[in-house]
Design a protein around this nucleic acid. Structure first.
Length: 286
DNA sequence: AAGAGGCCCTGATAGC
DNA sequence: TGCTATCAGGGCCTCT
C-alpha cells in the first residue's frame, strides 16, 4: 500500500504513538531486505528518543535526538504494525491490531515501553536505513524530484524537468528522480483526470496539459490522503485502518468497465507500459 | 548517457 | 495436501 498517500497515513497514525517516546531495543529477525539492514541498528537506536516523525515522497522519516535519522521505505508490500504490550487493552494506539499481525515476514521489531512496532514485508522490496547526520540523509535524498504536494511543484518546475526528455508521460510520472511520490495507481488516476494518453511523449505536452497534471496530481493525492489511502489487497484479517480510496478509482483496476466521464461511451482498457499495468480510456485521453 | 527491461521476492488467484 | 503461469502498490542495476 505504499505510494505517497499511504505513507502519509502511516506517518499520521504512527506519530501519535511514538513521538517523544524512547526506543528500548531493536530486534532484527531478518536483515535481508532490499538492502542489508545495518547489523548494529539495535546499538544505534537503543535509548534514543524520537523527536519528529515526517515523510518525504514515499519515505517515512523518524528523527532522533543528536541529529540521527531512520528512514523506512515500504517497497511493494511493507507494512508497520503497532502492538500494545497488553493486547487486551485495545486503544486507538493500534494501527493494525495485534491479533491481525501476520505470522510470517515480521523482519524488524522496535520495542518501546508499552508497545512495539513491527516491520512486515513479504516481498522484501522495502528497507530501513539509518543516517548519522542530516547531511548524510540529505545527500541520500538529493537525487529524487519534488513531490506533487510541494509548493514548488508548479509550471516552471515541470517545464524545466521535461526539457530534452524523450519519455512517455506515464513513465515520467513514475520516475522518482523527476517527480517523487507517485506510484502506479496514482499515475493512472492522474492521467485519467487530466485526459492525457499515457503513451504521450512529454515533448508533446502543451501548457494546458502541464497545468492539468499539476492540478490533478495535487488534487488526487490530497483526496487519497483524506480517504485514508488505497487498500488494494484485502487485509481480510485486519480491523486496523484500511483506506477507501480504492472505491474511487476511475481508471486503475477498471479494465473493460465504462469510462466514467460524462457523455463518454468509451471503455477503460488495460495495457502494459514498461511492464507496469496501465489503465486508460482511448476516447477521452488524447 | 538517457531510457528500456530484467530482476529482486512471496503470495494470491485463475486456468488447466 | 494439484500444478503452473501470471500478476501485484517499487526501484536498483545492467545493457544498449
Amino acid at each position: 500500500m505504499p505510494e505517497l498517500p499511504e505513507v502519509e497515513i502511516i506517518k499520521q497514525s504512527l506519530k501519535k504513538s511514538i513521538l517523544y517516546k524512547k526506543i528500548i531495543k531493536v530486534l532484527i529477525k531478518n536483515r535481508n531486505l532490499r538492502f542489508k539492514i545495518e547489523k548494529n541498528l539495535n546499538k544505534l537506536l537503543s535509548k534514543k528518543k524520537i523527536i519528529k516523525v515526517s515523510r518525504k515522497s514515499k519515505y517515512l522519516i523518524i528523527y532522533f535526538e543528536q541529529n540521527q535519522f531512520l528512514i523506512i521505505h515500504f517497497g511493494m508490500s511493507g507494512t508497520l504494525h503497532l502492538v500494545k504490550k497488553n493486547n487486551y487493552n485495545k486503544t486507538n494506539l493500534s494501527f493494525y491490531n495485534s491479533e491481525n499481525l501476520p505470522k510470517k515476514h515480521n523482519h524488524i521489531i522496535i520495542f518501546f515501553k508499552n508497545f512495539k512496532i513491527i516491520y512486515n514485508d513479504p516481498r522484501r522490496f522495502g528497507y530501513l536505513k539509518y543516517f548519522k547526520s542530516y547531511k548524510k540523509m540529505n545527500f541520500f535524498f538529493s537525487n529524487i524530484g519534488l513531490e506533487p504536494l510541494d509548493k514548488n511543484f508548479n509550471l516552471n518546475y515541470l517545464k524545466k524537468i521535461i526539457i530534452n526528455k524523450n519519455k512517455n508521460i506515464k513513465n515520467f510520472l513514475l520516475d522518482q528522480k523527476y517527480i517523487s511520490g507517485i506510484g502506479n495507481i496514482y499515475a493512472n488516476e492522474i492521467l485519467y483526470y487530466s485526459k492525457i494518453n499515457p503513451y504521450k511523449n512529454v515533448k508533446k505536452l502543451n501548457i494546458s496539459d502541464l497545468k492539468k497534471i499539476i492540478y490533478f496530481s495535487k488534487f488526487i493525492l490530497k483526496k487519497a490522503i483524506k480517504k485514508g489511502g488505497s487498500t488494494i489487497r484485502d487485509f481480510k484479517n485486519t480491523k486496523g485502518i484500511a483506506g477507501s480510496f480504492q472505491n474511487e478509482f476511475k481508471a486503475y483496476n477498471r479494465e473493460n468497465k465504462n469510462c466514467l466521464n460524462k457523455r463518454c461511451l468509451g471503455k477503460i482498457i488495460k495495457v502494459f507500459i514498461s511492464n507496469r499495468s496501465s489503465y486508460f480510456c482511448k476516447n477521452c485521453q488524447k
